[in-house]
């Protein structure tokens, strides 16, 4: 594993008495693509702004390469930021925007020229040097913002919902481009988004936040398959979250029945939350299913149908290419590995 480049220790930030970030601990490794994910107001942008130097933590310490940087101003940090609405300099053209940081660092003119040429190639904007930034499309402005930050060769690049203003198709393209860029230039990306799909697609590590508290840190697969609590399960993807009781290791009861599962380490008869992903439930004939129910609604979603099935005292969401009409009696089938048990109220 590569070394830690940024560390946040017990960091807290309040605005007028309201806690935005509550005592978080987090480290970020070199060359990692890490995403801070959560609903708006969860503290992800505040965390990013503290790393960038635009906010100072009220409590706790931030370390960069082992040096405490709490009160180091942004212009002295080896970190660059891609801002939410790009924050390009409208009085400068594309070339001058990208050259801004290099000129301040007093880098020789021909070196600036060379690096900007290279950057424009990387973000696929060759020939746009003299263009006015206002004349560019959202995606192009986005790429100028990325080029302007990357050309300074920071150790860490911060990205604050950089794709938020783009349409879906362009967003998907830019996601791939950003991932490729990160691999090519080999620097740490810290990415903030509220879009869980974006986070799962791009990141090496996802940090799920809510109410200023880190809910879970893990790889996208971990976060999706093994959510730590109800919030994470609910926020990442669609889930059926059912209240249940853990009778003993590998045996959980919900919907009035006992099921085998792969989870252990709970107290005897501990109340738990059980997660089953809608795509993990299979529809069968009623007698073949583990739970019997009636279809109450069907919505066509393109790739699959989304059906609500009432049965076992719960309304299950099921995603399947196999459509059953409203009112049909069906059976629900799932395997022990599809059941994920979480501690209640954690």
């Amino acid at each position: 594993m590569s070394k830690k480049i940024i560390e946040l220790n017990n960091v807290t930030k309040r605005y007028n008495g309201v806690t935005a970030v509550n005592n978080i601990n987090l480290y970020i490794r070199e060359n990692e693509f890490i995403t801070l994910l959560g609903p708006s107001g969860c503290g992800k942008t505040t965390t990013l702004r503290m790393i960038g130097g635009f906010e100072e933590p009220d409590e706790g310490d931030i370390f960069f390469d082992g040096v405490r940087i709490n009160d180091v101003p942004p212009y002295k940090r080896n970190i660059n930021t891609v801002f939410q609405r790009y924050a390009l300099f409208t009085h400068l053209n594309v070339y001058e925007n990208i050259a801004f940081g290099l000129k301040i660092k007093k880098i020789p003119r021909d070196e600036i020229d060379k690096r900007i040429k290279h950057m424009l190639k990387l973000v696929d904007l060759e020939g746009f040097e003299g263009r006015h930034v206002d004349s560019l499309s959202g995606g192009q402005q986005q790429r100028v913002a990325i080029a302007r930050a990357l050309v300074c060769e920071p150790k860490v690049l911060l990205l604050d919902e950089p794709l938020g203003a783009l349409d879906l198709k362009l967003r998907k393209e830019m996601q791939i481009e950003l991932m490729n860029m990160q691999k090519n230039v080999g620097i740490t990306f810290i990415y903030v988004t509220h879009d869980q799909e974006e986070a799962l697609t791009m990141s090496d590590t996802v940090v799920v936040m809510n109410n200023g508290v880190i809910q879970q840190v893990g790889t996208p697969v971990d976060i999706y398959n093994e959510p730590k609590n109800r919030f994470v399960a609910d926020f990442i993807g669609e889930s059926n979250i059912i209240e249940g009781i853990m009778h003993e290791d590998y045996l959980v009861e919900f919907s009035g029945q006992k099921f085998k599962c792969l989870d252990k380490g709970f107290n005897q008869n501990e109340p738990v939350d059980v997660v089953i992903r809608p795509e993990d439930i299979e529809l069968t004939a009623p007698e073949k299913g583990l739970i019997q129910g009636v279809v109450t609604s069907v919505v066509f979603k393109g790739v699959h149908y989304e059906m609500m099935v009432e049965g076992g005292g719960f309304e299950y969401m099921i995603q399947s290419t196999d459509m059953q009409p409203v009112g049909a009696n069906v059976g629900l089938m799932f395997e022990p590995e599809d059941i994920h048990v979480m501690k209640r109220g954690s």
Partner: peptide, 27 residues
């Protein structure tokens, strides 16, 4: 003037005086 533009200048290495002459004044 968008405050984030001033933050961007600071982010790119400009101190307060540099930000004034290179960004605020021209804008």
């Amino acid at each position: 003037i968008d405050k984030s533009v001033l933050e961007a200048a600071s982010d790119l290495g400009a101190n307060k005086i540099g930000t004034f002459f290179k960004v605020i004044l021209p804008l």
